[in-house]
Amino acid sequence: MAARDYGQYSGVTRALELVGERWAMLIVRDLLVGPRRYGELAAGLPRIPTNILAARLKELQAAGVLRRAPRSRVIVYELTPFGRELEPVVLALGAWGFKAMGQAREEQIITPDSMTIDLRTAFRPQVALDLPPTAYAAHVGVAELLIRVDGSRLDVTRGDGPADLAFAAGPGIHRVIAGELDPDRAIATGVVEVLHGRGDLLGRFADTFHLAA
């Protein structure tokens, strides 16, 4: 368990003792996308000191939040069923934090896993149910994601692939998701660059993925 002890007997207190240490919830966030090797976790959290990453992994494993598992002759870290119960908590935190993001600073980056969770947070399945199946190839900073929406089902994977709309963007894509920037205006001002496919589908993307800031 984490060393922090608040000396209180309550559910919130216990939760913070288990996952409230710095970096812990970001490790959980990335593992919600899928199992990761140690090096992959370190690459996805470039500012985390290696000793802190090792300590957090050990603490989360002791708490039953994650486990080490062999995969194709390598060891990966994956969430346990207990750890996966944190998904709605992480998504709710993301929606809450989205309201206070403000403008991105120059040194801030978007990672594939952070963008994947942002998309899960902003996904509106009730809207997608009324739209045709659509695939988007999104190049957001260093993150290359293939986003497939089919009714209420969302599938986000790393890499490129056949898509109805392929676009490139920076942190400004969050302004589109927040409804602060009209999709047509985003394209006209270069915030979003259409690489191929139908540019008008960015409007469908904005309808499907929306979080009010």
Rank of each mutant, 00 (worst) to 15 (best):
I109S: 14
L79M: 04
A62L: 14
Q108G: 05
R71P: 00
A69N: 10
Q103W: 10
F98P: 05
L119E: 11
A100Y: 15
G64L: 04
A128C: 14
F98A: 10
E107G: 04
L91S: 08
E107C: 08
L93V: 10
Q108C: 04
A135D: 11
R67C: 03
P70I: 05
F123L: 08
P70E: 09
I110N: 06
T80V: 00
I109Y: 12
L79T: 02
E78Y: 08
R105E: 09
F82P: 00
Q126L: 14
S72L: 05
R120T: 07
M115C: 10
G83P: 03
P88S: 06
L93T: 13
P133F: 13
E59D: 14
L86Q: 01
P70A: 04
Y77P: 03
P81H: 03
E78S: 08
A95F: 06
E87G: 03
G64A: 04
R73N: 13
L66D: 01
M101Q: 15
D113P: 06
L129Q: 15
V76Y: 02
M115L: 15
A69Y: 04
L86S: 03
G102A: 07
Q108T: 06
E107V: 06
G102E: 09
I110C: 10
P125G: 00
Q103P: 07
L131P: 14
A92I: 01
A63R: 01
P70N: 06
